[in-house]
Simulated scan of single mutants.
Amino acid sequence: MKEWCGSAAICVNTNSEILMVKSKDSDAWVIPLGGIEDGESSEDCCIREVKEETGYDVNIMDFILTKKRLLMV
C-alpha cells in the first residue's frame, strides 16, 4: 500500500464567497487541493496549491485537518 498525503484550501473572501476551481478529472467544481511534496509541510502545500491552481497568494488563517489515505496499488 502507498500512503497519499495532501492539503486543501477553503478560501473565503469578505463577501463569504468560496473560491472553487474546475476539476481536471471531471466537470465538477472543487476547492484547491493537491499532494504534499517531499520535505513540504501541509501548510506550505496548501499555499502552493492555491497559487498554482488560481494564481492567488493566500495566508493560512486557521487549520482544519490533515488527511492521510492509504492507496491500494
Rank of each mutant, 00 (worst) to 15 (best):
N59L: 06
G55W: 13
G34M: 08
C5E: 14
T66G: 10
E49S: 04
P32I: 12
E17W: 01
A9S: 14
K22A: 10
N13W: 13
T14V: 05
A9H: 14
I64H: 09
E43G: 11
V73I: 11
E17I: 00
W4D: 13
C5Q: 12
D57F: 06
C11Y: 07
E43I: 14
M72G: 08
L19C: 13
C11H: 08
K22P: 07
G34Q: 05
V12W: 05
G35P: 01
M20D: 02
L65S: 11
I10Y: 08
S41H: 02
V12L: 11
E53L: 15
I18C: 14
W29C: 02
D38P: 13
M72I: 06
E17V: 07
M20C: 07
I10Q: 03
C5R: 15
P32L: 04
Y56F: 07
V12C: 04
E49C: 01
M20P: 00
G35A: 13
K2I: 03
E52G: 01
L33Q: 05
R48Q: 09
P32K: 09
S26M: 08
I60P: 09
K24Q: 02
M72S: 11
I60Y: 09
K51W: 01
I18P: 04
K51Q: 14
I60F: 12
V21M: 00
L70G: 06
D27L: 07
D57S: 11
V21G: 07
S23C: 15
W29S: 06
S42I: 02
S7A: 15
D62Y: 02
W4K: 02
A9D: 14
I36S: 11
V12G: 01
E17P: 09
S42N: 12
I47C: 03
V73D: 15
G39S: 09
A9C: 13
V73W: 12
V30R: 11
E37D: 12
R48C: 03
R69W: 07
E49A: 02
W29R: 07
V58S: 05
A9L: 11
S23H: 00
T14W: 03
L33G: 00
E49R: 08
M1N: 10
D62H: 03
C45K: 08
N15V: 08
C45A: 14
D44N: 10
G55A: 09
C46M: 13
N15P: 00
G55L: 13
G55I: 10
L70P: 06
N15G: 01
A28T: 09
I36C: 11
S23M: 02
M72L: 08
D44G: 12
V30Y: 05
T54C: 08
E3A: 15
V21Y: 07
V73K: 15
L65I: 10
L33W: 00
R69T: 07
V58W: 06
G35C: 04
E3Q: 10
S26P: 06
G34Y: 10
S16H: 05
E53S: 04
A8C: 04
I10L: 15
A28S: 13
E17G: 08
A28R: 15
N59V: 06
T66D: 14
D44A: 15
